[in-house]
Design a protein around this nucleic acid. Structure first.
Lengths: 235, 235
DNA sequence: ACCAATAAATGAATGCCATTCATTTATACC
DNA sequence: GGTATAAATGAATGGCATTCATTTATTGGT
């Protein structure tokens, strides 16, 4: 006799236009955390974070809003699921392969790029214990291992990662800022040095000024960390 | 004949327990932006940002919620008022007095300290044009002037400030994180390098680990920026 | 000195939103 | 086979920012 067929895979996609489900537990499970995560990502890319409401999420999944609460404790819990999903998309592959500086560079750019489209998660991430976010933990493990292999001073590894992460999060916000954020408007005359500096940068016609600032800061951090390490880093 | 007494100063404090105001424009103006800002700060320090609602703000000021909208366009507008108020508390006094590195150090620490108690403002600040925030502009002007006087390469000044600010904002979040944020819990065995690094840092028994990370990153940025400047900085 | 426009308050309503609860139905385990 | 549990519905609930009609006082123009 063949083994019993595995439990039917939970629907991870949107509801097809079926007839209305009647009350009571359905024969096939409709929701699970992976499906909720996927639907949330869809919704965000379609309508932005303002469109991410529990009601909209439920609708996408073809379910009543209250059904979500059988699988997540709160909306913040949904944000945590998103965060962990995104953490897995951050590129840590260079650690242990490329030299330390190159690996940090690749990680930080990737980290910023992933989260710049998801800045509303940052206040949640930055404060939430990592224990419930296994993919996030995996990212930290890879980065930590890379620092250690490179001979980075043990007692400074976490502090350095925290500092880099702070920079990455702040820079992620900067990506979303409007181009004219530094336009002083009618107050321009009162801040001549600032206005001049803004104009000076604008004159360079960089396609993405935010990338220039990120590169500048990141290279400074990398150089600064390297210099702090007395005998330099291996790798 | 004496000049007519100046317009009665708008109440900037909370409402005293007076009898209920009747509908219609009162003889003495009750609200203004300064009073709203002050009341918002009070409210935040008493109840935190969760307690900062338009209704609660109105109550503090002894006013109906809708009255607020004669003075601010939205709640985000209130947050902008707060931001500008706080920007004036950031210490830029060292620019043009102390050497460049010391001035940056003092500015960045002060900036972080001021906003670490107000992280909910960060998503708003980071994205809002500076034109409506005169005190914020004044801060930028002082910082820019300091960089210029120190001989910092003109075309890099804004990028460097943006990078420092990104770091400061990210670090402000870090200040608010719980102590056990890096506790991997029951997943600890699966992330040995990370766990070891966390333990290694904990073994140092720093009173404020967040300050260690901030200092590390800030000194790296300062050193990195200095090194990038071919002939060093003046001052 | 009057009158119209405007400023600044009240109070009632609106619509959205996260969350909870009672209820219903199916499944899993002892 | 029966009971606890899981997972859905649908109907509240309370909080929230914001809007609108209305009322009253002040200001600026002629």
């Amino acid at each position: 006799m063949p083994a019993p067929s595995p439990a039917p895979e939970p629907a991870s996609g949107a509801a097809v236009g079926k007839s209305r489900r009647r009350a009571g537990r359905p024969m096939a499970r409709v929701l699970d955390q992976a499906g909720i995560t996927t639907a949330a990502l869809q919704l965000i890319s379609a309508k932005g974070y303002n469109g991410l409401t529990m009601a909209a999420l439920a609708k996408t999944l073809g379910v009543a809003p209250s059904a979500l609460y059988n699988h997540v404790a709160s909306k913040d819990d949904v944000l945590l699921l998103l965060e962990d999903h995104l953490a897995a998309m951050v590129d840590v592959s260079a650690f242990g392969v490329e030299p330390w500086a190159a690996a940090v560079r690749q990680w930080a750019w990737s980290y910023r790029d992933v989260f710049s489209a998801h800045t509303p998660l940052i206040p949640v991430i930055a404060v939430l214990p990592v224990a419930n976010a296994p993919k996030t933990l995996a990212m930290y493990e890879a980065v930590t291992a890379g620092f250690r292999e490179a001979g980075f001073p043990e007692e400074k590894i976490i502090s350095a990662i925290v500092a880099l992460e702070a920079f990455v999060f702040g820079a992620a916000y900067d990506v979303t800022a409007p181009e004219d954020i530094f336009d002083a408007g009618n107050l321009a005359e009162q801040v001549p040095n600032f206005t001049a500096a803004v104009d000076r940068l604008a004159a360079e016609r960089h396609p993405r000024p935010t990338d220039v600032a990120f590169s500048l800061g990141l290279e400074a951090l990398i150089a600064g960390f390297s210099a702090m390490t007395e005998y330099g880093l291996r790798g």
